[in-house]
Amino acid sequence: MALVNPDFAEELKAFGVDTALECFNCGTCAAICPLIFEHFPRKMIRYVQVGATEKILQQAQELWRCLHCGLCTQTCPRQADPAELILGLRRYVVDRWRRA
């Protein structure tokens, strides 16, 4: 069972992410991502939307697999900017590590 934080997308704005709720989970980003890795980055964006912070922190290492190549942002039909979202999540995780 995972705890969810419905305000998480709002909290992420402090880390430069304000497009998380634009995503409607079509999966175009995961289809074009060169990593071809477990629905990345769609899965992470979904975690943000529902506020599954524990899941994000458990799988934090996956965030650094992202190449920041920007193909997902280029092809996103909702301008949800998945590349920037992953970068924002890295900032959030680094901040958590430093405060821990």
């Binding site: 060169p34 990593l35 650094w64 697999r65 920041h68 190549c69 193909l71």
Partner: peptide, 25 residues
């Protein structure tokens, strides 16, 4: 152009193995 494929370079510092995988493609 705008749809160029990544060479894998950005992964080099965290995972040279991942870099190789993307580079090969």
């Amino acid at each position: 152009g705008e749809f160029t494929s990544c060479c894998g370079g950005p992964a080099e510092s965290v995972s040279p193995a991942l870099n190789r995988e993307i580079l090969d493609r």
